[in-house]
Computed example of a mutant assay.
Amino acid sequence: MNMNGPVKISRSERLQTCQEIAARLHEVYGEKILAIGVYGSVSRGTDGPFSDIEMFCVLGGESSEPVEFSHEWSAGPWKAEVNVCSADVLLKTASTVEGKWPLTHGPFFSQLSLYDPKGFFSTLKKAAESPTKEDFRHAINEVLVGEMYEFIGKLRNVNLNGPHTYLPYLAMQFAEYGAMLIGLHNQKLFSTGSMVLPESLELPNRPVGFDNVVKLVMSGDLVEPSKIVSACEDFWNGLVDWAAKHDYVMNSKRIPF
């Protein structure tokens, strides 16, 4: 049977493709290239038969405009993405903490280097290690207000007025961003998107009610509206207590500016 989309490819074949992409990058960008590396599951050695390829192409030298774009394509049996960035752009991104830091910043800590004559990836790791506790606190405050407060408002609206078909999605959002908060609080990275929820359950200092929402989502038990609403409300109450305990800010002046 012919299979559309990704097909089974061995790790050795995938690594060979990475080398071919790197060779093409050298042809296109020449002496501007500071470093080339692979990140994601391929760099960790956890890639599966259908995994895609993710790479950095770091450009150095003097440039009047910062460079930041991606080549992303499917070759039929496999898919690849190459992030082409100026060194200063990548270093700034690595040193910034935002709401999904526990999921997005793993690539800055570990790459499979294909070309790095000046040791750029070591510098990148140091940049990723540079954020302060206050940087993490600020990111947590933003998630609490920007996501979690918004989700509980939506949940209460839907519970009153419908449509209840939106509740499973909201439960997943509560679980995902709750996991991000716990990762940020512990300054821990998740290994991959598929492991965010189970790995979050292994971290300490989880708000009361979080585990129940996550277990509902992981089990797929998202049919009964009242059960979803009750679980998310319990988690919200636990989150309010958790924020107060750790001095995170959820409320401000009526108009703070």
Rank of each mutant, 00 (worst) to 15 (best):
G238S: 01
L170W: 02
A244I: 11
S219G: 10
L91Q: 02
E147S: 05
N141R: 08
L15N: 06
A179R: 06
L25S: 03
G119V: 04
G238H: 00
V214K: 04
N237L: 14
L91W: 05
V229Q: 01
E129G: 07
L103H: 09
V67M: 00
N212W: 11
K92V: 01
R206G: 00
G220S: 15
M250S: 07
S51K: 14
A23N: 14
N159M: 11
L239N: 05
R24A: 15
V143A: 07
F50H: 11
Q111P: 01
T96N: 10
N237G: 01
S219F: 02
S95M: 08
E233C: 08
Y177E: 04
C85R: 10
S51L: 15
I255D: 10
S74I: 09
M195Q: 11
S113P: 06
K215A: 03
L170P: 04
I36S: 06
Y248E: 03
I53C: 13
Y177Q: 10
Q111T: 14
H71E: 12
S10M: 00
R156K: 08
L222V: 11
G183Y: 12
N141H: 14
S252A: 02
P163K: 07
G220R: 08
D52A: 02
V143Y: 12
V217K: 14
R14N: 03
M172F: 06
W101D: 03
A175V: 08
P66A: 09
S86K: 06
C57A: 13
M3Y: 05
S95Y: 04
V208R: 13
I140E: 06
L201H: 05
S230A: 11
E199S: 01
L112Y: 07
Y149G: 02
L144S: 07
N157T: 06
H246T: 05
G146Q: 13
V67L: 03
R14P: 00
F121N: 13
N141K: 15
T123M: 12
L203K: 06
V84L: 10
E13C: 15
E202V: 06
L167M: 02
Q16A: 15
L25Q: 12
S230H: 09
M1F: 10
F121W: 07
N237Y: 02
L114S: 11
A22N: 14
A139M: 08
A23S: 10
E81L: 08
Q19F: 11
L181M: 09
M180G: 00
G178I: 00
H246C: 05
S12R: 15
R254H: 08
E68Y: 13
A80N: 12
M180Y: 08
E20I: 06
S95V: 03
F136Q: 11
I228C: 09
A75L: 08
D88E: 13
S10V: 00
I182R: 03
S194G: 07
P131D: 15
L155R: 06
S70F: 14
G45K: 05
R156Y: 04
M55F: 07
K100F: 05
Y177T: 07
M3P: 00
P107D: 03
G99L: 09
H185G: 02
